[in-house]
Design a protein around this nucleic acid. Structure first.
Lengths: 231, 231
DNA sequence: TGCCGCATCAATGCATACAATCCGGCATAC
DNA sequence: GTATGCCGGATTGTATGCATTGATGCGGCA
């Protein structure tokens, strides 16, 4: 389905700054840092076993990606301001509706069959999969649609949004295990039926978008983060 | 209308890397560098009168913003690959349609009056304004709508897209001086009339989106760039 | 006891130094 | 004449050193 994409922190022959960027992105997604936390460059450089120069290059990239903030002095982890998280989810809805619409126009039967097969596999392993794994499958479904849209810019934007909402999405997944998969199936069926409007509507309803749901997920996210940090 | 926003390269009390970032962004928008050109760090650092360390931090940010590329060895300026430019414009259409729809729901009469007044001013100075100025006014109109959408993430994404298509948009503006302004007026009228569908349709038709138009603009862009470089 | 000033320290931002790698030219061999 | 291998310069990537600045803790004073 997609053979490309970087294996995150796998390849050992990258420059230090690229490795640091990949590792930090991973750690940020996994909430190794607390929301609002200040980044200490020396300690972080020691952990990553690099010097501050390539570390700072990685941090600067993460700032541009919205995964870190650039405070007056130094870097910090974004908080979970509800307005921002809400905007992120709203932006995601719009991007995904656009990509699914384009995918309706562009995707051929072979690609849709492949996506269907992917959903079958996903569902079979779904009951006892970890949340991490569920999120991975979830992201892959949506990313495949973005790929089928043929627009690399939108796909990249979606990837970035996925990174920035990762935590909230993670905690929200718990109560949505089954719904998620069946909704994916419905969306795909609409695409295959050529019913663009229904596919878009399905997508819009599928993504967390009601303010109260998001707020609740944010609260749960705080709980999750501080549980992790004390562990 | 919008009192915020950084004045780009104005404030002298920023860090070197921030200044460099602002200056380079400006220079990239103004096509000081050729498409595909490789960046020489020492010469650029000398020009900006800073050392390579903060320069590289700025370059890394620009890479994350899509304004530069990260080649095997060093940085380079993105080319004008038609597929990418087309994707950028397509993404812009989708974002702008989303923001105008949200603005229809959120914007109050006062804000729309202000936007209308802005259009009046723009039109009065339009006939003899420079292309730079026209682009500035154009961007401001669209950015204001994004602001009225209430979604800062989408607004930021639009700003980034504007940066990345700046050149092509610039050259395309020549043949569209009058059309642009009247279309802006139409879009605003639809918003004020509460006709969301018409506003979206107007926006969609307003933004460069036909492949042949974009291709032609890219060609003109090449001409413009190489004219600049020889001057 | 509470508050202010000062000194000490830690952390950032930047410049410089160093190492590794690549590119080009040139000579030499076939 | 072409291919090949080597050398020197140029350029990137990283580490280290230094200055500045904000934070912190402590002692004196009201």
């Amino acid at each position: 389905m997609n053979k490309d994409k970087k294996p995150a922190a796998a390849t050992p022959h990258m420059s230090s700054s690229h490795r640091a960027h990949a590792q930090l992105r991973e750690q940020l997604l996994r909430s190794k840092f607390l929301p609002g936390q200040k980044i200490n460059e020396v300690s972080l450089a020691n952990e990553l076993e690099i010097s501050r120069t390539p570390l700072r290059e990685a941090l600067n990239r993460l700032v541009a990606e919205g995964l870190l903030l650039d405070r007056e002095r130094g870097f910090s982890v974004p908080g979970l301001e509800p307005e921002v998280v809400f905007d992120l989810f709203q932006a995601r809805v719009e991007i995904e509706c656009a990509t699914v619409r384009m995918a309706c126009e562009l995707a051929g039967p072979a690609e849709l069959d492949a996506l269907s097969a992917f959903l079958d596999e996903s569902m079979s392993e779904s009951p006892d999969a970890s949340v991490d794994r569920l999120i991975e499958l979830d992201i892959r479904f949506h990313d495949t649609i973005a790929e089928l849209s043929g627009n690399k810019v939108l796909r990249q934007m979606l990837s970035n949004l996925n990174d920035r909402i990762h935590l909230v999405r993670w905690v929200a997944m718990e109560g949505r295990r089954e719904r998620t998969q069946s909704q994916h199936r419905e969306i795909l069926d609409h695409i295959r039926a050529g019913d663009t409007a229904a596919a878009i509507a399905g997508m819009r309803g599928h993504i967390l978008h009601r303010k109260e749901d998001i707020l609740q997920a944010i609260k749960a996210a705080y709980g999750h983060v501080y549980t992790l940090s004390s562990a």
